[in-house]
Amino acid sequence: MKLFKVRYAFSEAKKNVLRNGLMSVASLFTIASCLVILGVFAIISMNVNSFTDKIEDQCEVQLYINAGTSEERVNQIGEEIAKIQNVKEASLFTKEEMLDYAKKDMFGEDAELLSGFEDDNPFSDSYKIILESIENTGETVSELEKIADVEKVVNKQDIVNMVMNLSKIIKRFSMAVMLVLLIIAVVIISNTVRLTVFNRRKEINIMKYIGATDRFIKGPFLLEGVIIGFCGAILAFLAVFWGYFALLKYVGSLSIGALELIGIWSISPVIAVLFIFFGCVIGVLGSSISMRKYLHV
């Protein structure tokens, strides 16, 4: 396509957007609103993913050994644990260490209540085991339970399952909401372009008789949709950026460990690309539908 044709398409598209001022602005804000909601769900999704990853990193299982097991056997159990797949790390926590921990961290000033337990320690030796992947926790726990002299294996599978399920529900809900919003946005932009096609029907008719190609006639209408979609994306990005920045600032002091939100500079490029992509796709789709239905060249 010659430079003139590109320039012509852009200048006509710009004119179309300006001529349909109110309708263009309405479309732009609708697309921006849709993208903002899409962005909110994307951010929630990204944060839930990050949270799940962190839980996975912290995923640990506690293995308790029968009372009276010899020190040699306890060490042997450690070696057997290390051989099991999905075990990243295992560290021994002796019953003496557990008693000390209980005295210092659980009973504090009332530690004397536990005095006398040194000779008849009620705790068991245990292993704190870090797993490679959260998803195979069930199988790993079964393997661990099979080891001789193991009293019980305690894991956080319920919490893990809950987070994973929540994450799945949020993802599915986000996808459904996004789909509905995208359809709404496409319909709205299609109506705006349809209005332009109607307003310019005489010009289109003349172009047809002069021998303008389909691409030449359709180009400006397609670009009109893209321009509205792109501007809507920029507007939505600014709103989401500002909103997330304010949220981070507000909850910043409350963020602890796994609950810490993803930084704004990690999220911004993803959101910007997502918005521009969807903005332009909405624009192209809306224009195409309109042209297919109302622009017979």
Binding site: K202, I206, Y209, G211, T213, D214
Partner: peptide, 21 residues
């Protein structure tokens, strides 16, 4: 259909209502 514009370029057309921009 995609060749129609090129066919029309071989013709000029004038209407009763002028059809000017």
């Amino acid at each position: 259909d995609k060749e129609i514009p090129y066919l029309r370029r071989k013709m000029g057309v004038v209407f009763q209502d002028f059809r000017l921009l």
